[in-house]
Amino acid sequence: MTATAYDPIAFHDGLVRHGLIVPAGVDGIFGRGAVFEDVLARFDKLILGIAEKDDAQVLLFPPTIDRSIIEKTHYMDSFPHLVGAVYSFFGKELGARQLSEQINAGEAWGEHLAMTHVCLNPAACYPVYPTFAGTVPEQGRLVTLFAWVFRHEPSIEPTRMQAFRIREYVRCGTPEQVVEWRNMWLQRGVELLQSLGLPARSDVAADPFFGKGGKMLATSQLEQELKFEVLVPVISEQNPTATCSFNYHQDKFGEAFGIKTPDGQTAHTACLGFGLERVTMALFQTHGFDPAAWPAPVRQLLWA
């Protein structure tokens, strides 16, 4: 039985009431309780298990990235509304005193800060591409990452978070290698979520590009079938939640970071990411707030 009748507020309140999440003052930012974390970690382990024989290189980056990656990939052309750039204080004594006074007086204080060289990472795969620079081996490259990402999308709706975790896989190679890998995972991703009793299905999708130009980019992305999502109803049956997302970037990152295949062509890349909080929430919504009462086959997979 589902936890709530597909209602975002009721679902949020249910997660809080059961100690699964803990409000932390700002919409889209909340703490995670032990039971929530246990389910999330077990799901992550399940993904790693089914992908084990792919022999992906493991990499871990902090949730902050070199600002020049944002600039080189033209992130701000597409998603200026989502960015989190880190600003800090570079001033001297007098400036520091003015800053304190303004904060203590309840006034705005952003004017005293200036841009640093880091941004909050907006997509798990971004820090990987510079490491691919040069010529990739014949069989291409495959990397897996576990990452916190940030998107400035404050919302009371629990599946739309400002900060969340992704289990990511990134493939780099010839167009054929990359597309074949993407298609293999698309099926795998749907099957994995279905094996957990989630009513998952895949569909073509578009990124939330900014503004009028963004409408055109989104249409272009749909027409070229460059993005797919695996959808599961969590807060709405009509608009199911993307729990896993697949992006085929063609030669975008290969061009930006000088990545080549052995034949001298610009390498293509694709990535896929499981939204770990979203899958965890989908499990709670689908099977109820108490994991002890989840169907035996689901428990067996996660607690094997």
């Binding site: 009028k212 130009g213 409408k215 055109m216 980019l217 272009s220 027409e223 070229q224």
Partner: peptide, 23 residues
């Protein structure tokens, strides 16, 4: 192509409706 679209709007004093914003 987005920059071309926006520049054409300026050049011809037109506005492309949503259904025309495709490849």
């Amino acid at each position: 192509s987005v920059n071309v679209m926006l520049a054409l709007e300026g050049e011809f004093d037109i506005e492309f409706p949503d259904h025309m914003l495709k490849r």
